[in-house]
Amino acid sequence: MGGLILCRSEEAQKPYYISCLGIYVYSLEELCYSIYNNIYLLGNDFVDEQLIEFIRNDTKDKWLADELTFLKEKKAGLRELVITILLYVDYYTKNEVDELRTLIDNLSALGTEERLKRRADNFLVNKKYDSAIKNYADILNQKEHSMKDDFYGNVFHNTGVAYGRMFLFEQAAECFKMAYQLNNKEESLKEYYMAAALAGIKVLDELNDEELRNSSMGEMDEISRKIMDSEDYIEVAQIGRLRSEGNFAEYSARLKQIFDKWKADYVAVSR
């Protein structure tokens, strides 16, 4: 049953920066949202003195700040601290908090490499590609490898996806190649072909499946056609027309606008 949830604590004038997520929060509701949707990304030091002081002085919630201080003195872990916050703030339902509690418990039961992969996957889904790549690398650099080959293959595959979305196609191709060699999945091979084509590098002979390659190139062509119908492409084409019409002032202005946006977008995903 829907409705309006009254925010009981205050909106901060000065936001709190969650460094592990790269975001600013102004309220306890936003803090809850950040916790709930990024639980894999939170370290044991997430609830620290700075966060507690933000809760106390900026959102003016003395009770929660005191409670977290008390729990920290009792050496409570991340699970207990975040669940306290989520149960206290009227944002998520009890069922939703219970689900998260179960998720955290399940995470604890996972091995180090699996937990790291969940964390890295979460960075990938949230478009934090640079962080995703670093975390995937952490898995591959572990001293001990306890998982099967296809697990590491999938790690390479996702690393390739992250590189691809940052337009680093050569690195992406190398990762997809490693992925296929470990997981033997057709998907990884197809991505290898596409990344290699975009990077302008030659596919290895031993990995060259002509039929699959042609099918992959066909898919790329189809994607290219769809891109030309997209709003973003149409906007760029319109800007190009301004130049050919001699409207240089507006052309420069709109071009700068679009470059600034792309730059900001790229900076955001390179975290």
Partner: peptide, 11 residues
């Protein structure tokens, strides 16, 4: 007063 909209159509 501040409210979070939780599937609400009106106030």
């Amino acid at each position: 007063l501040r409210f979070i909209v939780d599937d609400a159509k009106e106030i």
